[in-house]
Design a protein around this nucleic acid. Structure first.
Lengths: 162, 162
DNA sequence: GCTACTCGGACAAGATGTGTCCGAGTCAAG
DNA sequence: CTTGACTCGGACACATCTTGTCCGAGTAGC
């Protein structure tokens, strides 16, 4: 069980977009986090497909959030990048083998499936309880200096000086 | 994000072992569930390595639970088969790039990492709250007929008659 | 002592995630 | 209006991991 590493990138990008005044190109986000630009583009496409961010084409284009940060949950981002289906999939092995249970007795999921799905629901609930705005607030509180001001300044500097 | 499919097999095997009077060979468990015997053996080895089940060698050998079923949680099985490390691993990308945060300011995990770990903790707590005994009880309650009696009888029939 | 049965770890194949690339479309500037 | 350069979007290889399989070591019973 391993989550796509791109989820971390996507979340950081969403937090950065919170502070951005205008559209931010994918290449710039990749440079800011020092990650592969081509691969980050794929994650951002996933966010765009899910309707969390909007793409602006042409010069001075880029990505921007479609909704206020407090209306985007962490679960939204995770599902957009990592896929919406639950980690556990029941293969109904109770209906196989010599002692297979009849299909009419399997109208409700088996006990194992129920337990796993309950855990999955708890996980999703925890992720749904946190919004991008919460993350941004926590990040701001974590450091003494204003991180977002620095990011805004760096984004404004168009040319790629280190 | 996808969990190993072997987790489902392992859980079913643990529930079956609850009802078994003596050691059960891996081949028999595989036949009962109609799954690959070679691959199921690997999962059972994982359970054995984790100390959840004990192997008895030689003729009339097999696997049996080392502890009472109410002292084995679903989380134990999941971690034994799927690996104990959490799904989300923070790569500390905040310490990279042109605006890298200094290492001394990163003594605590970042907000994103905290949120993901909180969700992971909720997931684990839900899995830890359910024991194999609970699963066995629920399975028994799900059907009218006594499933475990049937399993016991099938296990007692040594030769592989369908 | 022998046989037959068991587990245990080492060895390939397929699937999924990771990483990269180039083309279509679009906005801004001249 | 033309040109240009910059943007995203999806299609194309590579790496890693899960899945699946195999045979050898060890052990209990006959």
């Amino acid at each position: 069980m391993k989550m796509s590493g791109g989820v971390e990138w996507a979340l950081h990008c969403c937090v950065v977009l919170t502070a951005a005044p205008g559209p931010v190109p994918a290449a710039r986000l990749a440079e800011l986090h020092d990650v592969s630009a081509s691969y980050l583009a794929k994650q951002l496409q996933g966010l765009s497909r899910a309707g969390l961010i909007q793409s602006v084409q042409g010069q001075a284009g880029g990505y921007l959030l479609t909704r206020p940060p407090d209306e985007i949950t962490v679960l939204d981002v995770v599902e957009a990048v990592d896929g919406p289906r639950p980690a556990f999939v029941c293969t109904e092995i109770r209906q196989r083998g010599p002692l297979a249970a009849p299909a009419e007795a399997c109208l409700v999921p088996c006990a194992i499936s129920r337990a796993m799905h309950a855990a999955d629901a708890a996980w999703r609930a925890a992720l749904r309880a946190v919004t991008i705005a919460d993350l941004a607030h926590d990040v701001r509180a974590d450091y003494e200096v204003d991180v977002f001001a620095g990011i805004r300044g760096w984004l404004a500097a168009a040319n790629g000086e280190t």
